[in-house]
Structures are given as structure tokens and as C-alpha cells.
């Protein structure tokens, strides 16, 4: 008889160790780097220095705008797609959803480079139109993340509620605004969080598509790290972390209420 009683919680041990090694310690390291100088003394200079620079503020603003724009465009494109896919008369919806999801299976770097070349071939030069090309790359990459949660929410819409709305005198557009849209709100929020935050922090897409002509938060972290400015890079990482945490809290209420799956956070 073994004296150590086996408990199911030991099964979590490998992951626990992994978490400590690769999540908690690095996070603490980032925090430590963010608030120390080269000699290891505590300082707020990194923070004040970051906000003191106009180009850094500009980077955050551009990241925010690109993130917001990408979210809006993806929602505008993805919502009708998900709506029609989830319609009960739709034949083979899974096959078509798959078609939208499939690009996600192709290697991300390859896919982005291919998109750039495709645009170049079509006459859109990343160097000449960095913002436009970056936006196209972003939308292309994040559209599946919008369609999937929206589709999941919409397949769960109760068709009888739509009929009830029509029965009570609502024209199709009124039913859409008053019933379909509010009821798919959790899916919209979920989709938005899946697009907005990763867009803000992405750097490969802006790097490749914009030919390094524009700088998002992710690009500025990379730039600092490349130059060996670990402390500055860390403070940017902390700021981004706070931004994401803030976004999470802001959308949490909607999430909890409707309990929708499909959020990867």
C-alpha cells in the first residue's frame, strides 16, 4: 500500500510547473525590467520616458485606430456571412464555414508574405500604401476569428423569436435591429475581443505588409529588443498588457451574462 495517497490534483502538476516556468516567472521578469534601469535600480523613468516621446504616443494611437478599424471591417464583412450561414435554409453550412476557416491552417508567415506578393502583383505596393496594405492583411487574417464566434451564436438563435417578432408587427429590418442584433451581441463582443487586441499587438502583419513603414505597439517592442533596450521594451509590454486587461474588464459583463463559448481568452 502506498503511503502517498494519489489525488487527482497531482495531474495538474506538469502544467503547474510549465506555468511557473514560462508564464509567471517571465511576467515577473518583464515587470522587474520595466521598472528598473540598466544598473538594476528601481525607476519610473522608463514609464515617463515612453509617454514623453511623441512617436510612442503616436504608435499607441495608430495601433488603437488600426485595431478598431480592423474590428469594424471584420464585423461588417463577417456578420452577414455568419448570418446567412446560420440560416436554417442553408445547405451544407459546415462545409462553407470550413472554407472560411481554411486559410487559418496555412502557415501564418507564409500566408502574410503571399498576401503581400499578391497585392504587389495587383499593383498595390506595401511601401507606397503601408496603411492600406496592412489593413488588407489584417482583415484577411482576422476575418475567420469573427465568423466563427458569430456563427456559433447565430446557430443558437431561436427561430421562433424571430417569428414572434414578425408576428408582433416588425418588418424584417425591424426584427433584425430589435431581435437578431441584440441577441447576437455576445457573439459580436466575443468576435471583437478576438480581433481588436491581437491586431493591436501584432507585428508580423504590419512588418510584412507595410514593409516596415508603420509601427504598431508590437513593432516598437521588437525594435527596442533588437536594440538591446530591454527595459524600454518591457515597459511597452506592460502598457500593452494593461490595455488588454482593461479591454477584458470592459467586455466581461456582456460575456458573463450570455455565457457564450468561442472566446479564446
Amino acid at each position: 500500500m502506498s503511503r502517498i495517497k494519489f489525488s487527482r490534483k497531482w495531474l495538474a502538476l506538469p502544467y503547474g510547473i510549465f506555468m511557473i516556468l514560462f508564464v509567471i516567472i517571465p511576467l515577473l521578469l518583464i515587470l522587474a525590467y520595466a521598472f528598473t534601469d540598466v544598473d538594476g535600480h528601481f525607476t519610473l523613468e522608463n514609464l515617463t520616458g515612453f509617454f514623453g516621446s511623441a512617436s510612442n504616443i503616436n504608435t499607441i494611437l495608430v495601433s488603437f485606430i488600426i485595431g478598431a478599424l480592423n474590428t469594424v471591417i471584420c464585423l461588417l464583412l463577417g456578420y452577414p456571412v455568419a448570418y446567412f450561414l446560420a440560416h436554417r435554409d442553408m445547405k451544407m453550412p459546415t462545409a462553407i464555414v470550413l472554407l472560411f476557416i481554411m486559410p487559418m491552417w496555412i502557415n501564418f508567415v507564409l500566408r502574410t508574405a503571399a498576401t503581400r506578393d499578391l497585392l504587389y502583383w495587383m499593383g498595390l505596393n506595401g511601401g507606397a500604401h503601408p496603411y492600406l496594405c496592412t489593413m488588407i492583411g489584417m482583415v484577411y487574417n482576422y476575418l475567420p476569428f469573427v465568423i466563427l464566434p458569430l456563427y456559433t451564436t447565430m446557430t443558437k438563435l431561436d427561430y421562433s423569436q424571430i417569428e414572434a417578432s414578425s408576428d408582433l408587427g416588425a418588418r424584417p429590418w425591424q426584427t433584425f435591429v430589435k431581435i437578431v442584433l441584440p441577441m447576437s451581441a455576445p457573439g459580436i463582443v466575443s468576435a471583437a475581443t478576438m480581433v481588436f487586441m491581437p491586431t493591436m499587438s501584432s507585428y508580423v502583419i504590419s512588418d510584412v505588409m507595410g514593409e516596415r513603414k508603420l509601427s504598431l505597439i508590437g513593432n516598437s517592442i521588437q525594435l527596442y529588443f533588437d536594440q538591446g533596450l530591454w527595459h524600454m521594451g518591457s515597459i511597452v509590454a506592460v502598457i500593452m498588457l494593461l490595455l488588454i486587461a482593461f479591454g477584458m474588464v470592459a467586455t466581461k459583463n456582456v460575456q458573463k451574462e450570455e455565457n457564450v463559448r468561442g472566446n479564446m481568452w
Binding site: D158, S160, Q161, E163, A164, S165, S166, D167, L168, G169, A170, R171, I179, P182, M183, A185
Partner: peptide
């Protein structure tokens, strides 16, 4: 005529109330 133009109203089997 579509349902929204008919002067009739329905009570649905599973109520179909609007949860929001």
C-alpha cells in the same frame, strides 16, 4: 401577406419571449 401585416397574433409553444 407576411406575418407583420396580418391582424393576428400568436402564442408560441415555447413562448418565444425575448430574453434581452
Amino acid at each position: 401577406l407576411p406575418p407583420y401585416e396580418r391582424p393576428v397574433n400568436t402564442v408560441f409553444q415555447k413562448y418565444a419571449l425575448f430574453p434581452h
